[in-house]
Design a protein around this nucleic acid. Structure first.
Length: 971
RNA sequence: GGGUGAUUAGCUCAGUGGUAGAGCGCUUCGUUCACAUCGAAGAUGUCGGGAGUUCGAAUCUCUCAUCACCCA
């Protein structure tokens, strides 16, 4: 049965993938024939995620490296898995509960909610796995990992031990003093009511206002405010003011103001430092402090300071000893009632009034109310419109509130050193190199990493709280509010620690951690003290667990075979957007935990954009769905497109037209194979790895070309130059094999001697097999399908042996000869087309000169040239007759007698144009050769090459000039 | 404001000192038995501007312009 004309990707892909999986082709170590290992960890997609273009790109590159190594016989593992995406998953499940009208998270309680999340995970968490399979990703799915596996409450099928790894690392780092709990300003997401890390904050430019507020000076203080200036900007007129004007974009925070800062050298305010102003609305008396943070050039030069609600203000407050007053709830509403910090130092009447009007109002309502009040009471100095950056939560999209809370932090300064050293001394390389700068810059200025989250879905912090001994001793006189912490992998272990601390005779129990953090209970039952420890309710940042991905997925802390074999892993392929989130943290954590680098190379790829260069985003509606593209063009076409555009460090602008082009490339390959099949090339073909040793130049030549492209592909992949590999293969398969070799083979296969036929069949079978093998990492499906269709094989292509032959297969003589033949055919075709010779017309050809090499080349390849250039005969001639088209090639001068067909003037024009081009090139070459400095300084081979080229061009030009002269004579 | 990168054919982009390239698009011709998801031929470039280093610069240096991204 003849092959179809095209490859049916839709039909074949699922079938082939299933066959690979069923045969265990992707399991760790499959097809290994050597001791070296090769391991890639997939950057774990969100369990809530679905495949987007970035994933498709990222995983195509990984798959290429993995398939390449597996075919080369490395002991290969591509470790897949997903991360549990704390906020995102909790958000998805809460939204589903709301949609279904079910009880909310808080209504159902922590345990029940987590059950629901696990149910959701088991139903929907596999989406992206199936999508990766459609792309052809050859991950070892039997090892699929999950960052929450083995956590308490994990259902059957989720028994891994990732949770153990996370908890063990927390405890170890805690014991080493790398983790601490502290009260600091954090980025607080008022929607999710949790802290987030500064990396999860997006700066969004918004149109807003700068409100100027008047804070009256106390104690009769005044200052001179400039109102007129001369040309040089020196003030010339002043007015006396008994108030300061501060400008703010966030008036609602003023209730938490505890100072006004001015620059220590600012002449306007210098004498006011140490004096006070009276805060409107609540009558708090707050000091005027000196700090460089106040920029005299900006606004009025006086800045209100709200340490509890602004990062810069916090710093100022720390430096100048100001109080920090929190005036907001976790939902960013005003918190004034029952807020002793707020009330302290204020006018009780004003406090009562403020509570009445503002307590519990949302921050934006409060802003409006305060501005109205200021307008009515005359302390609003003015309003300027102002475009400024406002931090937003990347998940919730609401404005982030700097918020003063107790959180857990990794003291990154203590573990950053080894991560910097590893890249500095080259043990880990980041490609392209420019990203190393980004890495260094971030790590050298690293801030403490806030790792606690006020969520339920995640690894609960393994710390239990109890009363301190001081508190017990002083009971009931003192409530310290400073509990004793016990950090341990389990409650039992924490109880051990507690027993050591409190003494053996104290009864210790656990109280469920439902309340606020750091609560505990204790009491005396007669003389017997009983203490209920309570676990910290917070969970860890998801990136804390993904930071352990390299060891966690391999079974650590168990010393598994896989861990010993595959760690440290080899290459990490990831997008630049998570260098901070993930790469840097993996480096720090692996080095801190097992004292080894996690991988020797990080390949950072660029962004996939739409064809206009815009970032793909749902809101712009310019998202290309990789799955739709796979449906339309096939996975191979999508993969090849992404690969061919994967130039290091450059963004990809993806257009469907380009994908269609590579789909066509697949069809081209398919039809070359179809041609071979139709000509019995694969009949009785038994590939045993031997390379044909043909006698025909054309066969020798294509074997050399194959060796050349194999070298190019290997070099390119070794250097992570994926586009070079793809483009070399494209040029070879289409430009060499299909355009020339298949055409050259036709006369041999159809009219050759039995010996010629046999060797040509053997060569073509081998060449096509090599195309399939070399293309397989990039286009796995169509190549596997052809491999199976064309012949009987011992192994599937996915496990075929990657070739190692090299330049020894290149025959310089065959190379020269075939290039001469191709050149001649192209010249003839070009002349014919320009002279409007009918395409199908067979014409005779004459030659006036032809050197020995040319003669031999002609004789050996006569049939090919005649067929492809449509020449019916070749004869020697003394001179070319009138009406003859001249063709000059190296070592030969040919003519096509076309009297009556061609226009002499047109031929003249054609020759002149060719000659002009030639002379221009020649001019450049000779100019260089005439320059003695060039001959002196340039490398010898360059000079030699230039000489040869000049000679060849000169010879060709002479021939053309002779032809032109002849034309002139005859005209 | 700081940093990084980019600017090459109509479009998208390769090209790290030695003959300016590819794909797409465009024009003309062509369905002879691998393929019209095809073939043959053709046109299109002061390599962003300027200066410098060099025998020689798209490539190295400086400078200007424009754009993009990251960080404040």
């Amino acid at each position: 049965m003849p092959m179809e004309k095209t490859f049916d990707a839709a039909e074949a892909e699922a079938r082939l993938y299933e066959a690979w999986e069923k045969a265990g082709c992707f399991t760790a170590g499959a097809n290994a024939s050597r001791a070296e290992t090769f391991c890639i960890m997939i950057p774990p997609p969100n369990v809530t995620g679905s495949l987007h273009m970035g994933h498709a790109f990222n995983n195509t590159l990984q798959d290429i490296l993995v398939r390449w190594h597996r075919m080369r016989g490395f002991d290969t593992l591509w470790q897949p898995g997903q991360d549990h995406a704390g906020i995102a998953t909790q958000m998805v499940v809460e939204r589903e509960l709301a949609k279904a009208g079910k009880p909310s998270r808080r209504e159902m309680g922590r345990e029940k909610f987590l059950e629901t999340v696990w149910e959701w995970k088991q139903q929907s968490g596999g989406t992206i796995i199936n999508q990766l399979k459609r792309l052809g990703a050859s991950c070892d799915w039997s090892r699929n990992a999950f960052t929450m596996s083995g956590a308490p409450g994990a259902p059957a099928g989720e028994e891994g031990n990732f949770h153990d790894a996370v908890i063990k690392v927390f405890v170890d780092m805690y014991n080493k003093g790398y983790i601490y709990r502290g009260k600091r300003l954090v980025n607080w997401d008022p929607h999710f009511e949790t802290a987030i890390s500064d990396l999860e904050v997006e700066q969004v430019e918004v149109d807003g206002h700068m409100w100027r507020l008047r804070y009256p000076l106390e104690g009769g203080a005044t200052y001179e405010h400039p109102v007129e200036w001369d040309e040089d900007g020196n003030p010339t007129a002043f007015e006396t003011r008994d108030y300061l004007v501060v400008a703010t974009t966030r008036p609602e925070t003023m209730l938490g103001d505890t100072g006004v800062a001015v620059h220590p050298e600012d002449p306007r305010y210098k004498h006011l430092i140490g004096k006070t102003v009276r805060l409107p609305l609540c009558g708090r008396s707050i000091p005027i402090v000196a700090d460089d943070y106040a920029d005299p050039e900006k606004g009025t030069g006086a800045v209100k300071i709200t340490p509890a609600h602004d990062f810069n203000d916090w710093e100022v407050g720390q430096r100048t000893g100001l109080r920090a007053i929190n005036v907001m709830t976790t939902r960013a509403a005003m918190w004034l009632k029952d807020n002793p910090d707020f009330a302290e130092g204020c006018d009780p009447d004003l406090v009562a009034k403020a509570i009445e009007r503002l307590d519990g109002t949302d921050r934006y309502e409060a802003r409006e109310a305060i501005i109205n009040e200021a307008t009515d009471d005359g302390w609003l100095d003015g309003i300027d419109s102002d475009r400024h950056m406002v931090p937003h939560g990347d998940r919730s999209k609401v404005a982030i509130e700097p918020y003063l809370t107790d959180q857990w932090f990794v003291d990154t300064a203590k573990i950053v050193g080894p991560a910097l050293d590893a890249v500095r001394d080259g043990r880990t390389k980041i490609l392209p190199e420019q990203h190393e700068k980004v890495y260094f810059h971030w790590l050298e200025n690293i801030e403490p990493w806030c790792i606690s989250r006020q969520l339920w879905w995640g690894h609960q912090i393994p710390v239990w709280y109890g009363p301190s001994k001081e508190e017990l001793d002083a009971y009931p006189a003192v409530y310290s509010g400073l509990p004793q912490s016990f950090c341990a992998p389990s409650f039992e272990a924490a109880r051990e620690l507690a027993s050591q601390y409190y003494g053996e005779d104290v009864q210790i129990g656990e109280f469920p951690s439902t309340g606020p953090a750091r609560s505990y209970a204790f009491g005396w039952n007669g003389p017997k003290l009983s203490i209920d420890l309570q676990r910290d309710p917070d969970v860890l940042d998801t990136w804390f667990s993904s930071g352990l991905w390299p060891i966690g997925t391999l079974g650590w802390p168990e010393q598994t075979d896989e861990l010993n074999k595959y760690f440290p892993t080899d290459v990490l392929i990831t997008g630049f957007d998570i260098i901070f989130f993930w790469v840097a943290r993996m480096m720090m954590m692996q080095l801190a935990v097992v004292d080894q680098i996690p991988f020797h190379t990080v390949y950072v790829h660029a962004l996939v954009r739409d064809e206009k260069g815009k970032k793909m985003s749902k809101s712009l509606g310019n998202v290309l769905d990789p799955l739709e593209l796979i449906d339309e063009f096939g996975a191979d076409a999508v993969r090849f497109t992404l690969t061919s555009m994967a130039a290091m460090g450059r963004d990809l602008k993806l257009s469907t037209q380009r994908i269609a082009g590579y789909r066509n490339f697949g069809t081209k390959l398919w039809n070359a194979a179809r041609f071979a099949e139709m000509n019995g090339v694969f009949e009785g073909y038994a590939p045993d790895g031997t390379i044909p040793q043909p006698a025909e130049t054309v066969n020798t030549w294509i074997i050399g070309e194959t060796a050349r492209v194999r070298q190019t592909v290997d070099d390119a992949l070794a250097a992570y130059r994926f586009n070079d590999a793809a483009n070399a293969l494209y040029a070879f398969v289409w430009g060499k094999v299909c355009d020339w070799y298949v055409e050259f083979s036709k006369p041999l296969l159809m009219d050759g001697t039995p010996a010629q036929q046999a060797e040509t069949r053997a060569t073509m079978a081998w060449v096509i097999d090599q195309c399939l093998i070399l293309l397989h990492p990039i286009m796995p499906y169509i190549t596997e399908e052809l491999w199976g269709t064309l012949g009987q094989r011992d192994k599937m292509l996915v496990h075929a042996d990657w070739p190692t032959y090299g330049p020894e297969l290149i025959d310089a003589q065959a190379d020269r000869e075939m290039n001469w033949v191709i050149g001649l055919i192209e010249e003839v075709r070009s002349a014919r087309a320009q002279m409007h010779v009918p395409v199908g017309l067979q014409i005779p050809m004459l030659f006036t000169e032809l050197d020995a090499a040319g003669r031999a080349a002609w004789d050996r390849n006569e049939a090919l040239i005649q067929r492809l250039a449509r020449i019916e005969s070749l004869e020697a001639a003394e001179t070319l007759p009138k009406g003859c088209v001249t063709i000059a090639v190296e070592g030969g001068s040919f003519g096509l007698p076309l009297a009556g067909i061609i226009d002499v003037a047109e031929e003249q024009a054609r020759l002149e144009k060719t000659l002009a081009k030639l002379e221009k090139e020649l001019g450049g070459l000779q100019g260089r050769l005439k320059n003695p400095k060039f001959v002196e300084s340039a490398p010898e081979d360059v000079v030699e090459e230039t000489r040869e080229l000049a000679a060849a061009k000169g010879e060709e030009a002479d021939k053309l000039r002779a032809a032109l002269a002849r034309l002139a004579e005859l005209a």
